[in-house]
Computed example of a mutant assay.
Amino acid sequence: MHGDERAERIADFIEPLRVEPGSKVRLGRDFDPRDKAGLKKREGVELLRSGVELLAEYQQRLAAQDTYGVLLCLQALDAGGKDGTIRHVMSGVNPQGVRVSSFKVPSAEELDHDYLWRYAKRLPERGGIAIFNRSHYEEVLVVRVHPELLVRQRLPGHARGSGVWKRRYQEINDWERHLTDNGFKVVKIFLNLSKEEQRTRFLKRLDLPEKNWKFSAADVRERQYWDDYQRAFSRMLSATSTEWAPWYVVPADRKWFARICTAAILAHTLIDIDPRYPEVDEETRKDLRTAKRRLEQEAPEGLPADPYAARHPSAGKKKRG
């Protein structure tokens, strides 16, 4: 892919995580939360470092080209590792080009609009990356598991019928198709956590005083709906993994492996876009050469006219783009 061997390796690595569009998913049957693709943690650290470097390289191109934007949607149950994944995977990129949005309980203002309104407000701009820590898929997950939340949205009667979830899947698919058609790539990752690993992480938050702030009694109450959420996730993955915006189910019981997978999926998206640095026209090149001569003429006596070129003799000969 574009002569980059890394692209082919990444594509092969993430292919088993991709939900085939049109397939019927059952999480417990189809995806193992403890899978690590035969990797050891030591190998994983090096792979993550390489992935972060790759993201940094391609993010610069994305920003310079200013044509495409990327939306990364992260979904998971409580303690699924969304915050840590964002922190580690995005550690090497320019923070000016990334915006993270976390969506909590809708405000009164948000409830006065359609359910996609608050998410549309946080979409990326061209050249940028937006990360949704939880996303518009909450509207077919938590709202489906807790239908009383649908009542709070004050929908007209015809919009609350038995076909509401099927209709929302279609509306979300259409919205994401609209985004991709206009140059905004949608990357969707579900961090697949096992019930036992969630229990272990909850206990760690209770056992360590410095992690107590991360625990909420509501987390344990919500755990009672585990089976309902598994069904809701399975239905969501089946209905909304599309050719233009496929889902990736990432094993999340091992945090280090989840971070490698997320970095690889995001890198694959950027490599596929293949953003290029803008080419300047000949008139602009003339202006650049004039500016360069003027700056070189200002060099103090005894110092090189162009210190950078003196240290990097081949810099001006490199192919641009």
Rank of each mutant, 00 (worst) to 15 (best):
L17R: 03
R18T: 01
R18N: 01
V19T: 01
S23L: 10
K24G: 01
V25Y: 05
L27H: 03
R29M: 07
D32C: 04
G38R: 00
R42W: 03
G51K: 05
E53W: 11
D66G: 12
T67L: 13
V70K: 02
L74A: 08
A76Y: 10
A79R: 07
G81C: 08
G84A: 08
V89I: 10
V89G: 08
M90G: 04
S91M: 03
S91W: 01
N94R: 14
Q96T: 10
G97R: 11
S102A: 15
P106W: 06
P106H: 09
A108K: 11
E109K: 12
E110P: 06
L111P: 07
D112I: 06
H113Y: 01
R118Q: 09
Y119S: 02
A120M: 11
K121F: 03
K121W: 05
L123A: 03
L123N: 00
P124T: 05
A130Y: 01
F132I: 07
H136F: 13
Y137T: 11
Y137D: 06
E138W: 02
E139Q: 10
E139M: 09
V140K: 09
L141P: 06
V145E: 07
V151P: 00
V151K: 12
Q153P: 07
G157V: 03
A159P: 00
R160S: 13
G161N: 12
S162A: 12
S162R: 12
V164I: 14
Y169W: 12
Y169D: 00
Y169M: 00
N173E: 04
L179N: 00
G183S: 09
F184K: 07
F184E: 00
V186K: 00
V187W: 01
I189C: 13
L191M: 14
N192W: 15
N192R: 14
S194V: 05
E197Y: 09
R201V: 06
R201T: 14
N212I: 10
W213H: 15
K214S: 15
K214T: 14
A218R: 12
D219K: 05
Y225L: 12
W226V: 06
R235Q: 11
R235C: 02
M236L: 15
M236T: 15
W244K: 04
P246R: 04
Y248E: 02
V249I: 13
V250S: 10
K255C: 06
K255E: 10
F257C: 12
F257T: 04
R259I: 08
T262W: 11
A267H: 05
I271Y: 14
I271G: 06
D274P: 02
D274W: 07
P275G: 09
P275C: 04
R276C: 07
R276H: 11
R276Q: 12
P278N: 02
V280P: 11
E283D: 13
T284L: 11
T284G: 03
K286R: 10
D287C: 13
R289Q: 14
T290P: 01
A291T: 09
R293P: 11
A299V: 06
P300H: 15
G302L: 09
G302D: 13
P304E: 04
P307S: 03
P307M: 04
Y308F: 12
A309V: 08
A310V: 02
H312T: 05
P313A: 00
S314P: 08
K317C: 02
K317R: 08
K319S: 10
